[in-house]
């Protein structure tokens, strides 16, 4: 009788273990993307200052800002729409400024705010810095 009871408890424990393990694997495998709009910025700065830091020493600026959530403020010099319907706002300089990319899903979410963002307006974006090519690229941006 006792033997049977312990066996039953043991079975329940094994079953619970399997459920926990599979859900853990499932969660890790389908891990949600970083939601920038819910993250607080590590750095908040003027786009001009970010540009001068990258121009002075690209390597150390890359180390400092890569993959960090940052908030940049600056004047819009150009707006482009990519093939995948993301929008790119270039701040301070069209060629060598800060390019803030808003993914299409975030364009939809922030539509009314973004229609007010025109050439010449001073705006703030929060996003993830992915480094510098000609311009400094901030991706997954949301307007502040």
């Amino acid at each position: 009788m006792i033997k049977r009871k312990t066996l039953r408890i043991l079975l329940w424990i094994i079953l619970a273990g399997i459920v926990v393990a599979t859900s853990a694997v499932y969660y890790v495998f389908n891990k949600p993307r970083r939601n920038i709009s819910k993250e607080s910025a590590v750095y908040t700065m003027e786009a001009k200052q970010l540009i001068s830091e990258f121009k002075k020493d690209e390597d150390s600026a890359t180390k400092k800002y890569l993959d960090k959530t940052i908030t940049v403020k600056g004047e819009i010099k150009s707006i482009r729409t990519l093939d995948n319907q993301s929008k790119v706002f270039s701040l301070e300089d069209e060629m060598e400024g800060v390019s803030c990319t808003v993914d299409s899903a975030d364009v939809v979410k922030n539509y009314s705010k973004l229609t007010q963002f025109t050439k010449g307006s001073n705006v703030t974006f929060k996003g993830r810095c992915s480094g510098m090519l000609m311009d400094i690229q901030i991706i997954n941006c949301v307007p502040e």
């Binding site: 890790v28 891990k31 949600p32 970083r34 993959d67 992915s130 480094g131 690229q137 991706i139």
Partner: peptide
Amino acid sequence: FSVLTTSFKFRRALMEEHFN
């Protein structure tokens, strides 16, 4: 031609993490 490796988008967030 040049590209920033963190700008690649995958189907799963986990793939992006492993890639980078």
